[in-house]
Amino acid sequence: MRIPCPHCGERGNDEFVYLGAAALTRPAADAPAEAWHSYVYLRDNPAGLHSELWQHTHGCRRWLVVARDTRTHAVFSATDAAV
């Protein structure tokens, strides 16, 4: 796969490390246990468009939010997670 890093340009996926779903919000410290269970463990795992976190570990080291189709691997966008 090739991932278009917004900072470095398109690069092979061996330069990146994958974490998982990007559309998860870390609950507040006092959130109920169920919210934490859901954040840490439960995943939509869609067959289709997936918003996910990749780090350009062997490049700019930025965490990116990549929109990718899990059926075709087509990448639609890659943006810096912090921006």
Binding site: M1, N13, D14, Y18, H50, E52, R71
Partner: peptide
């Protein structure tokens, strides 16, 4: 391969 996928194929690395 290490990323979510429903395509039955991997990558070269």
């Amino acid at each position: 391969d290490g990323y979510n996928s429903y395509a039955q194929r991997g990558s070269m690395p």
